[in-house]
């Protein structure tokens, strides 16, 4: 029963996504004003050739700060989880 319900949900979800996907056109995005601005002005505002790096670290630096925090938190979580398993490790980290 549970398995049939799961398959039904997956089929409905797939049809839903497929109908949306058939409507989209590939290779011709509509609203490109923001990206055109970045590509036109990124070189003089940040003095950088790589526009992706300009966006990651300059225009959207807050995103990257949050991303670094997520990575840091995940590594701290992994370290805390393994800490009890590894014997003789408790004195090293203190």
């Amino acid at each position: 029963m549970r398995k049939e319900l799961s398959i039904l949900i997956i089929i409905i979800f797939g049809l839903f996504l497929g109908l949306i996907a058939l409507d989209l056109t590939f290779g011709d995005p509509d609203n490109t004003a923001m990206d055109d601005y970045f590509i036109q002005n990124g070189q003089e505002q940040a003095a950088t050739n790589n526009i992706v790096t300009t966006i990651v670290f300059d225009y959207r630096g807050f995103d990257t700060l949050g991303e670094s925090t997520v990575l840091f938190t995940a590594v701290i979580g992994v370290a805390l989880m393994y800490r009890k398993l590894v014997k003789g490790d408790a004195d090293e980290n203190e």
């Binding site: 990206d35 590509i39 526009i51 992706v52 300009t54 991303e67 990575l71 590594v75």
Partner: peptide, 21 residues
């Protein structure tokens, strides 16, 4: 367009962190 690429970079790193956890 450059913004989707930058945000995908963010998404990939968060995916790595989530996978490790």
């Amino acid at each position: 367009m450059a913004t989707p690429q930058a945000l995908t970079l963010t998404s990939i790193v968060i995916g790595v962190a989530t996978s490790a956890l």
